[in-house]
């Protein structure tokens, strides 16, 4: 059974003139990695908000169709309840701190304090997360004084410590430098290995090619293309829909057009190299 099931979802913000989400249907299965891609304003963030229940609980407005979390209608969930089900991390590192804690350790504890978890358990869980995410050097610092990348890692830690089964992560690295981006992705990879269901909005297509199982391409509020990562990322149609393909896929498509079919469309560097080697060998044999 799907952990999240979206059926014919259409939504409009109370103050907007037209629908930001139009007739979207997607099934999310437990433990898989989903990537949502598309141009700015395509409705990616709105989709995340609908999954996390901020639509309609915080943004108001009318939601048509269904969003079911574990089979239960999103309208029936309370925002507080969902916090232990679905972790939510977004773009702006500066608004993702509680603003009431003096140290990173306390900041990460905040969610568990709110849930009323026992003190000794909070301490051990926070300590574990700090170790897992390798942010021990930050734990005594004031969250306000961290860099953007550090803040984002703390934000992720603060969510992960609450052990949600699903992580919705909306462009976590768009304001970060390459080094911080790498740090964030190694955390996401860790969560993938732990079997979490991950829904990620990200522009960096090479990273998506590396991690995602399933891709949803959005345009003008619609899910215009969706399917297994390999299929979507090697689909030329995706380019027409405004989504960038990994450079290795583009290379493969180009090769094919020029009569040098690699047999497959490679998505990552590794696969491209092996495909080219394969092709070269084949040519050597035939010539």
């Amino acid at each position: 059974m799907s952990i999240i099931s979206i059926k014919n979802l259409t939504y409009q913000y109370p103050t907007s003139e037209e629908d930001v989400l139009r007739d979207i249907s997607v099934e999310f299965e437990s433990g898989k990695f989903y990537a949502v891609i598309g141009a700015n304003g395509a409705g990616k963030t709105s989709l995340c908000n609908a999954i996390r229940g901020f639509i309609p609980h915080f943004y108001n407005g009318e939601l048509q169709g269904d969003v079911l979390i574990e089979g239960r209608d999103i309208r029936e969930w309370e925002l507080g309840e969902l916090s232990t089900k679905i972790g939510y991390v977004f773009q702006n590192p500066f608004t993702q701190i509680s603003g009431v804690k003096d140290t990173v350790f306390d900041e990460i504890s905040f969610g568990l304090e709110n849930l009323g978890v026992e003190e000794s358990e909070i301490r051990s869980r926070v300590a574990d997360i700090i170790q897992l995410l390798e942010i021990g050097h930050l734990q005594e610092k004031n969250p306000f004084e961290l860099s953007g990348g550090q803040k984002q890692r703390v934000a992720l830690a603060s969510i992960i410590v609450m052990e949600p089964e699903i992580l919705v992560i909306d462009e976590p690295t768009s304001q970060l430098d390459p080094q911080s981006t790498e740090a964030i992705f190694s955390i996401i990879e860790l969560m993938q290995k732990k079997g979490k269901t991950i829904i990620l909005v990200e522009h960096k297509i090479e990273l998506i090619a590396e991690y995602a199982d399933y891709i949803i391409v959005m345009k003008d509020g619609k899910a215009v293309l969706q399917g297994n990562a390999d299929d979507v990322l090697s689909n030329e149609q995706a380019i027409e829909l405004g989504c960038a393909l990994p450079q290795y896929a583009l290379f493969g498509i180009e090769m094919k057009e020029n009569g040098m079919d690699l047999g497959t469309i490679p998505l990552t560097e590794k696969k491209a190299i092996s495909a080219v080697q394969h092709l070269l060998e084949k040519r050597r044999v035939t010539s």
Binding site: F58, T84, Y88, Q96, S98, F110, N114, M162
Partner: peptide, 8 residues
Amino acid sequence: LTLESRAF
């Protein structure tokens, strides 16, 4: 959104 995500 941050506070709701932290179960405030």
